[in-house]
Simulated assay, not measured.
Amino acid sequence: MSKLLEGRVAIVTGAGRGIGRAHALELARHGAKVVVNDFGVSNNGEKTAPSDRQSPAHEVVAEIEAMGGEAVVNGADVADFEQAAALVQQAIETFGGLDILVNNAGFVRDRMLVNATEDEFDAVVRVHLKGHFATLRHAAAYWRAESKQGRQRVARVINTTSGAGLQGSIGQVVYSAAKGGIATMTLVAAAELSRVGVTVNAIAPVAKTRMTEGAFDTSAMALPEDNSPIVAWLASEEAGDVTGRVIEVDGGVITVENAWAHGPSRDAGARWEAEKVGPALRELLAEAPAPEPVYGA
């Protein structure tokens, strides 16, 4: 086993299957002790049987233990504020602290805008956006308290956004909005937590998973485990100078996303007159780079 993460304690949410499972196994290979969180839901968020001793999370823990690592199962709903707090506390009580939070849990309910329902909006935003917020909020409170006591931890957060959240995706208006929110949350959290030794980054993974299979042709897509080495390095003490970044991972290709940045501008020197807005804005658009096309457009 590698010593990149030796002695560090990690939580990985949504770690029973797919990308989350790959992250948990990769962190363990590098020496991390892992809390394997999985609420036990289907691809569209329907609850399965969390009490099953052969649940995916238990299988991941068994795999980690078989390689000589340490791991425990957690069945929390990460979007439940109290359960998210208990998840963080489990890591602290079981392994003596928390150093790494990998927010990965989520599901999809793809719909075109005109067909999306209020219930689908609430469910998708809840698991992705609130699910990231709740765990990060409680982890941040712990790290802040540790810092105040003179025990500042070299902590790392890796969130999960998506190309859908950065460039948009036809048929995924709600999912795209939630993932876009996660990218912005990453930037703000990175700025706020830098004073207590915490870096916060996000990956935009491209992989063949339950969430992508059936939606389009995934035959040429990367595997879930192709994303995990980037997560392992971002989770390490070596990565202390990298924060507030979004990194797309597509197989062997890693790309630093530029996201929103100020482009060309014009100053009218006073309140704009509506008649003058069109010509000025068209000049600015001609100077600016063309936006990335929306996926599926």
Rank of each mutant, 00 (worst) to 15 (best):
4 L>E: 14
9 V>H: 01
10 A>V: 04
12 V>C: 09
12 V>D: 00
13 T>A: 04
16 G>E: 11
21 R>C: 12
24 A>C: 07
32 A>F: 03
34 V>S: 06
37 N>E: 03
39 F>L: 14
49 A>K: 13
50 P>R: 07
54 Q>C: 02
57 A>H: 02
58 H>K: 05
62 A>T: 10
64 I>Y: 01
65 E>T: 15
75 G>C: 12
80 D>V: 07
81 F>Q: 07
82 E>K: 14
84 A>D: 07
101 L>G: 00
102 V>R: 00
107 F>N: 05
109 R>P: 00
109 R>W: 00
111 R>H: 13
112 M>Y: 09
112 M>G: 02
114 V>K: 08
120 E>T: 14
121 F>D: 02
124 V>P: 00
127 V>H: 00
134 A>V: 01
136 L>F: 04
140 A>S: 15
142 Y>R: 05
149 Q>T: 04
156 R>D: 06
158 I>H: 02
163 G>Y: 05
174 V>G: 03
181 G>W: 08
183 A>G: 10
191 A>I: 11
195 R>N: 08
196 V>D: 07
203 I>Q: 02
206 V>M: 11
206 V>N: 13
211 M>W: 04
211 M>V: 06
214 G>L: 09
223 L>H: 11
225 E>H: 11
227 N>I: 09
232 A>H: 04
234 L>V: 06
237 E>M: 06
244 G>E: 04
244 G>I: 05
245 R>S: 13
248 E>L: 10
258 N>Y: 11
259 A>D: 10
261 A>Y: 09
263 G>S: 12
266 R>T: 14
270 A>N: 12
271 R>Y: 13
273 E>A: 15
274 A>R: 15
275 E>L: 06
275 E>T: 06
279 P>K: 07
280 A>W: 05
286 A>R: 14
290 A>F: 13
293 P>N: 12
296 G>D: 09
297 A>P: 08
